[in-house]
Design a protein around this nucleic acid. Sequence first.
DNA 1: ATGAGTGCAAAGGCTTTGCATTAGG
DNA 2: CCTAATGCAAAGCCTTTGCACTCAT
Lengths: 155, 155
Amino acid sequence: MASTKTTHQHVEAADIAHHVATKLDEIGQRFTSGRRAIVESLTGAKRPLSIPEILEATTGLAQSSAYRSLTVLESAGVVVRVITTDEWARFELSEDITGHHHHMVCSVCGAVDDVRIPDSVEHELDAALMKVASKAGFVMAHHRLDVVGVCKECI
Amino acid sequence: MASTKTTHQHVEAADIAHHVATKLDEIGQRFTSGRRAIVESLTGAKRPLSIPEILEATTGLAQSSAYRSLTVLESAGVVVRVITTDEWARFELSEDITGHHHHMVCSVCGAVDDVRIPDSVEHELDAALMKVASKAGFVMAHHRLDVVGVCKECI
DNA sequence: ATGAGTGCAAAGGCTTTGCATTAGG
DNA sequence: CCTAATGCAAAGCCTTTGCACTCAT
């Protein structure tokens, strides 16, 4: 908890492995080859991947191991489970690695891509959300924002 | 499509039944007692309901009928399936009935409530999203925004 | 060697579907 | 009446879990 700064600055690509190893170590978990392969897939993708996509990118990885490893990585705070539609769950690296961002979801093919909006908009948004949340006695941790539409492939 | 205005103004409670009946009729579906009961549950709740909650509020409704009716109502554009976590799906009336709003999701108990933020923030947000989306060749239909945090019951 | 991690297969849990029955127009 | 809608039960599909084997420390 003390070793890693969680600012809006993202972790450099080369340091991701080290960062993940540290986070795993903090909860007494090993950084095995399978987990390394998963993290590399997610790093290369720059968008949330589904289990089938992860398995395709990682030869010799059992589906159950993928689920189990992703759960461990999620507990370590390295991976986040993203719920887009009701199909497959998707997984991405946490925002202290990738930086804060949002998702564009294609309502036709289900494709998901990362997007970022100006900090000024983020701040105004957070201020407005914080206000309405606390008015309802709700302690806001963060927000989740998606663009829903049609991707260039499906137009 | 010509009969119902889809402005930011919501439909009056008393007219919901008529509105739903019209929408169903447009796709050749009947407004049966079961579907009426479901719509009434959703109207009363003023927040997205899960299948168990809907069944609890509607005696004598089979689970499969609930799923089927909700799918029909979704096709009619009257109901929206809300994806919050990976547990149960939740359903709510569409925004041309309820007006545009967002959700607060409790990360502890999973409770979901509606929230609204000022139009000015909505507009700035849409402008920013539209901009980054079109830059990626993506045609935005709408946005989806949730507050994630801890509700007053779980603090 | 010694417990964690993995693979394979089976079980779980939400959702969908098949078929006979009921009800709406 | 006659087709659409419903109930019940079985099947589907993503995800989780049990158990034996393998690998890292």
